[in-house]
Simulated assay, not measured.
Amino acid sequence: MQIERDGDRGTLVGVETPSADRVEAFCPHFGVCGGCQLQHLDRPFYESFKTGLVVAALEKAGLDVKSDRFVDASGRGRRRATLHARKEGAGYMRLRSHQVADIAHCPILVPELASRAPAIARAVEAVIGEADVAFTASDSGIDVAVRTQRRQARAERLMPLLGEFGLARLAMNGETLLQAQPPTLAIGRASVNLPVNAFLQATAAAEQTLGEYALAGIGKAKRVADLFCGVGTFAFRLAEQAQVTAFDSDRGAITALQQAARHASGLKTVTGFRRDLFRDPLTRFEFDGFDAVVLDPPRAGAMAQVEELCASKIGQVVMIACDAGTFARDAERLVQAGFTLRDLQIVDQFAWSTHVEIAATFTR
């Protein structure tokens, strides 16, 4: 291995004797683009490495929990991506840099976005200048949300892109500019009209896998609280067998969930409420009306909410987490309160990155 020094960092310039666990990366941008870091690992080593990230975090928290359930949930590719559009091109940031790696094709995205997303991002930069462009491949077409800090950016210059690229919707700085048709997504038996910048699981395969896990994890519960529910990723699947009360701080997400619930058929009642679960978590007394809880917090975890869960009479918690460190912290607290971590599954939707998705069931 040959390394050049770049300040306090080393830059790989060549591999003289490759490891037995090393393979050729499939993306021509690997090593330049910072979007993927692990394409050079063979499959067994890759899965072991990502599982180890979770196990190490749990061990640091004093929990001796192993997982041999690693699910490849990359599916058709990621259906969400944000590209940076700059003068030097459109793509993700370069490895260890604030400069953009210009790409024409991203092989980890779904086919609908792989080549079109970079082309659309370049077209955005051409008419309004530097911007970040978020893409979602919805069931009804590509949803594009542009964010820019350029005060002179004129929204009307973007409008021709709707027809030029056949977009479902075009938004700028959180406001819809034009919409050919509402971007929709089927979640279980419901169809959800997506709000601008809606949070979704990165791949459809991961959403399906995690939804099925949550449904199995609640067991025979008849009344379920879905915390940090988003647009209903879990709520509409849980409602196939239980009444669901869903909470999230995002007004647009709750509105979309409520609208979808009104039109869905074949489901038990789904009720949505807007609530900031960081500042105003459900109390131990409010949990008296539920048999189980599904918890899907952001990277910061949900310590305030976990404290109330620990003090409640709830005996079944399914946690979905996207950060190993905060998951381990929250899991440790649940275990201290008498819960047992009975199942741990690694769901790999952010393929070839160091990010992991974790699904776990706690009972007491």
Rank of each mutant, 00 (worst) to 15 (best):
L295V: 01
L277R: 03
R342Y: 11
F287A: 13
G289V: 07
D276V: 08
V318F: 02
F290A: 07
R284H: 14
L334Y: 03
A304H: 06
F285A: 13
M303G: 12
D296P: 02
D291V: 05
D288M: 09
F339Q: 01
G289R: 08
L277P: 04
A337V: 03
L309F: 07
A302E: 01
Q345P: 10
L344G: 03
T283R: 13
S312W: 07
Q336A: 13
Q336L: 11
E307T: 09
T326R: 03
L282A: 08
Q336Y: 08
R279E: 14
A304G: 06
R333T: 09
M303P: 10
L341I: 06
R329T: 03
G315F: 13
M319P: 07
T326K: 02
I314W: 04
P281W: 00
K313M: 10
T283I: 03
V293G: 07
T269L: 14
T271Q: 15
D323C: 07
L334W: 01
C310H: 06
R329H: 03
T340R: 11
D291R: 11
R333K: 14
R279G: 12
F339I: 01
D291K: 08
A304W: 05
L341T: 06
I314H: 09
V294F: 04
G301M: 00
L341G: 09
E308M: 13
A292C: 09
T340L: 12
R342D: 13
F273R: 13
C310F: 04
L295M: 04
A304K: 09
A300R: 11
G301T: 00
A302I: 00
A321Y: 00
S312N: 14
M303I: 12
Q345A: 15
A328I: 00
S312L: 09
A328Y: 00
A302W: 00
L334M: 11
D280G: 08
G338L: 11
F339Y: 11
F339D: 00
A304P: 07
A302G: 04
E332K: 12
L334A: 04
T326N: 05
F327A: 02
A311M: 13
A324M: 06
A302T: 01
V270C: 06
Q345K: 14
M303F: 15
G272A: 12
R342K: 15
Q305R: 02
R274Q: 15
